[in-house]
Design a binder for these strands. Structure first.
Length: 299
DNA sequence: TTCAATGAGTGAGGCCAGTG
DNA sequence: CACTGGCCTCACTCATTGAA
């Protein structure tokens, strides 16, 4: 048996418990047996003793702690500290396996053509943020052909639309700026310490769509009405974590968001074309109207 | 009626031998 | 050599029992 077999088994155990919320050993064993049949190559059937070892290893390796409830006689996952991190880990694992299948599958898989996202910098940047060390890198802006040298104090990382961004204080003018990781090169961590005073970035981005966080204005209550087809997509992939469903019927999906009215958000609304109508605030509806009018004027 | 003692059932974990 | 299964002991929970 290979290392991959036990790793896959770990993932299956976690999957089962995350989906079912709770399961007896018999239910987990049944699930593993079914998955073994489906897989055809690997055998995930194990004894109770090995299962117990798996539970221990899953805790050590993934930080996901499986406990046993004696009154209900079932296993369950103790509240995960950062479930979104585990979600991402399992997604990556699924994709890796889909791409790594033994048979020649490339004819069935079409990968999106895209440039590297700069994720190779993530680890170094996290290290610099955590230890409050200045960093230096070469940065190429979209609208410029040559790169510039920057020395910044890294503060936080944010993901938006499958891209990663670094928020950092530029030592040149002391302003907080946003840098896309895919446009960053020759990253160096300097041995210069700084004090990171504003650390609550979660609160800062709570009502933010995208990567622009206005300093002064307050977030607005936005009400949007999508047609039923687009509504299905919006339900499965919410625009923002503040999204709440107000009306959901055959004619429309009406949602509310508490969000900053940034350029990013306006662009997002424009991309939905005639499938969305802004019901509130009026200011946003007017702005959208202007954008469409000026687009019409082009022809 | 209350509460401690007891036993049954089951998981956790150490140890060891078998297997590929 | 790593992984696994089986055996054994200990730990834990819960239901039952019986004395105060």
């Amino acid at each position: 048996m290979s290392k991959l077999e036990s790793t896959k088994r770990h993932i299956l155990i976690i999957k089962k418990l995350r989906q079912a919320k709770q399961a007896t050993f018999a239910e987990i064993a049944g699930y593993l047996a079914k998955e073994s049949e489906l897989d055809g190559y690997y055998d995930f059937n194990v004894s109770k003793r090995t299962f117990q070892r798996d539970v221990e290893e899953i805790g050590t390796i993934y930080g996901i702690y499986i406990k046993f409830n004696f009154s209900g006689m079932y296993y369950f996952i103790e509240e995960e500290f950062e479930p979104e991190v585990s979600d991402r880990m399992f997604e990556a694992f699924d994709v890796y396996h889909a791409l790594n299948v033994k048979e020649q599958m490339s004819q069935y898989i079409y990968l999106e053509q895209r440039r590297p996202q700069g994720t190779e910098h993530l680890y170094s940047l996290l290290h610099a943020i955590k230890n409050q060390k200045r960093i230096q890198f070469e940065y190429t802006k979209y609208y410029k052909t040559h790169s510039e040298n920057r020395t910044v104090e890294p503060l936080a990382l944010k993901e938006f639309k499958y891209r990663w961004y670094l928020f950092a204080r530029d030592t040149y003018d002391d302003h907080i700026k946003c840098y896309a990781l895919d446009r960053l090169a020759n990253l160096q961590i300097l041995n210069v310490h700084f004090e990171n005073t504003d650390s609550d970035w979660h609160a800062k981005f709570k009502h933010c769509f995208g990567i622009v966080a206005p300093n002064a204005e307050k977030p607005s209550e936005v009400i949007l009405s999508f047609n039923s087809l687009q509504g299905k997509y919006i339900k499965s992939l919410p625009l923002h974590h503040t999204q709440q469903i107000l009306i959901d019927n055959e004619d429309e999906l009406r949602i509310s968001l508490t969000i900053y009215l940034t350029h990013d958000f306006l662009m997002e609304l424009l991309s939905y074309g005639n499938t969305v109508k802004v019901l509130a605030p009026q200011k946003l509806a007017e702005e959208l109207k202007e954008q469409y009018q000026s687009a019409l004027n082009q022809y």
